Simulated scan of single mutants.
Amino acid sequence: MTDIPETVVLVADDGTPVGTAPKATVHSTETPLHLAFSCHVFDDRGRVLVTRRALAKKTWPGVWTNAFCGHPAPEEPMEDALVRRAERELGLTLTDVRVSLPDFRYRAVDASGVVENEICPVFTARAVGEPSPAADEVAEWAWVEPEQLRSAVASTPFAFSPWLGWQLAAWEGSYSAPS
Rank of each mutant, 00 (worst) to 15 (best):
A54E: 02
P77D: 04
H34M: 06
N117M: 02
S161Y: 04
F37W: 01
C69V: 09
E6L: 12
D136I: 12
R126L: 13
P72A: 06
T31I: 11
V83W: 02
P32I: 03
R98H: 15
A125Y: 00
C69K: 05
F104A: 01
G70M: 03
E89P: 04
D43I: 01
T16G: 08
V109P: 03
S28H: 08
I4R: 15
T124E: 10
A142Q: 06
A152E: 07
E172D: 15
R88C: 09
R150I: 09
A73H: 11
P17A: 05
T16N: 09
A135S: 14
Y175C: 01
G91Y: 00
E87N: 13
V8F: 02
E116C: 12
A170Q: 10
V99E: 13
I4P: 09
S155A: 13
R98G: 14
V114W: 07
D110T: 07
F104R: 01
N117Q: 06
W143F: 02
R98C: 14
A73C: 10
P61S: 08
L82Q: 02
D44N: 14
I4A: 15
D96M: 10
T93R: 15
A154H: 08
W60L: 14
A81I: 06
D14H: 10
T65N: 11
L94W: 01
G62H: 10
R150V: 09
G165H: 00
C120M: 03
V63F: 11
E79C: 12
R84T: 01
S38I: 07
P102L: 06
D136H: 15
F104P: 01
V48S: 04
A108H: 11
F68C: 06
G46H: 09
V153M: 01
A127M: 06
K58Q: 14
D110K: 05
A12K: 04
A127C: 09
D110W: 04
T31W: 07
G91V: 02
L149I: 00
A24R: 13
S179F: 10
Q148S: 13
A67V: 00
S161P: 08
F160L: 00
V153D: 01
V122E: 01
A169R: 15
D110P: 06
V26S: 09
V9L: 06
V153S: 01
T7R: 11
V18L: 11
F123A: 02
L101T: 09
K23V: 12
H71D: 12
P61H: 05
A169D: 15
C39W: 03
G91W: 00
I4V: 15
A169Y: 10
A170E: 11
H40T: 08
A86E: 05
V8D: 01
S132T: 12
F42R: 01
R84N: 06
V50Q: 05
T95M: 10
R105P: 02
P74H: 05
V114R: 10
T20L: 06
H34R: 07
D136L: 13
F160S: 00
R150M: 11
A139H: 12
R98N: 14
